[in-house]
Amino acid sequence: MGGAVAKAVVDGVLTGGVYALMAAGLTLIFGVMDIINIAQGILVVLGAYLSYVLSQDLGIGLFLGLLITIPSLFVIGVAVEWAFMRRLQERERTALSILVTYGVAIVIEGILELIFGPNYVQLRAWYVNQSFHVLGFYLPYIYVFGFALAVFLLGVLYLILYRSRFGRSVRASLQDRAAARLVGVNVERVSTITFGIGIAVTAAGGMVFGATNAFNANSGYDLISRLLTIVILGGLGSIGGALGAAVFMTVIEGLVAVLWSPVWATLVFYAALVLVLVIKPVGIFGQRAARAQ
């Protein structure tokens, strides 16, 4: 039992890191643009399929392939922002964005289903199949590699946000768009690039997701539900909150699965959301409403 609990915690932390990365993109987009990107889940699946094609058809390794998939999804993000997001009226942006990004999600899902069919696939590599022994249980290498990748990319995100001029303009837009404009920040450009970055992280998230789960074109729904839960628990717009909430939730889910039953585990995930929204609507990790960093 002790080993199973330890495994649940370790699994939870390692998976949580990857969810944290995907959720960070979602919450960053909301923070800067007041946009809730429902397509984030299907874009993770798109990232997974891109990695699948690169590794299966072109023999490019999953991690090396990120050098192609991350920029590709960045470009897709910028295109979606340009085509749809910037046309949304500022006043009703959040509500409209849910509908519009849902539409985008359905289109991407349809295209993926057309190309890849309904069958489940999983990414393959030696580190997906092989495990190592630790704390009395076996752990596939991909969990550790995926976690390391997530930590690395979150570190890059942190450096961009807190150590660069561009990051400063992102944080300024996050906190007060009007004031950011007045000091000369080009908020529209910042929004476009932020949307691109928020989507680009799904390439990495998708690769790890596709290596640790079997997926098909419909896998986006479960993902977006989890990601939304995480960003709401973390406090919408709060990156630090998203990190904490992601790890917290995946660990809780793992523990419930081990100590109780896997059936209850998923339920607990969403029950936590309802509970938090009732008790503390700004999220357990959110300091204030929405615009906290």
Binding site: R168, S169, R171, A179, V183, G184
Partner: peptide, 19 residues
């Protein structure tokens, strides 16, 4: 009030020289 609340006072003043 147009200060960036989550930034420090110093960072806020530095933002004045953003351009």
């Amino acid at each position: 009030h147009s200060l960036f609340r989550e930034m420090t006072v110093r960072e806020n003043i530095e933002m004045g020289a953003f351009t």
